[in-house]
Amino acid sequence: MPAILELSGGWNPLVGESVVRAANFYPHGLWLLQQTTGDLFGSFEVTKIVHALLAVIALSSLLSWLAVETGRALGILPIALIYLIVLNPVVSAQALTFYVDGPVYLLSMIFLAELFLAYRTNHRRHDFAAVAAGVLLIGTKLSGLYYAGLIAFLFCAFVVRRWPGLRRWTASTTSVALIGVFVVGFHPFVIQT
């Protein structure tokens, strides 16, 4: 929260140092989102809604993925299982806070589900959704960078032998890396290294 207030107060991480020491070393993609929404709506408390937004997206992506994988309408038990995965204790516990672990979990789920939806359905919208989720994941926390790489690697290992859209997938994941590291994550990934 102090980092969001610093950003709102005019701190530019590209050229200046924050008095909030930790803020100088961590990705601030999610903070930028909370800063712009906080400035627009006049309340930084309301920016905690990012947890609910991401939970809605994760729920949708996972439900769609499971429906596509199984090829039939979902029963109440699979739906309950997905709710339990989405509303895991970390996400639930951080729903009213400015912590970012919950969003990292949710974005990891969205990234994975959208990659598989792109693979199964061959719709371009899922490519773009995967890029968006990957960029946000990298910009949310340093561990998001590791999770994004791990998910992309596992997905690649799963599909590499049987997917004609491999070129598009390569374009998507390369976009994630370029935008996530050099645009959203310019500070700290480029400046600090």
């Binding site: 993609g29 930028l32 989102l33 890029v131 968006a132 960029v135 910009g139 645009v183 959203v184």
Partner: peptide, 11 residues
């Protein structure tokens, strides 16, 4: 898309 584009523009 809205939140991802917001973060990219803000960056």
């Amino acid at each position: 898309f809205i939140i991802a584009i917001d973060v990219v523009i803000a960056s």
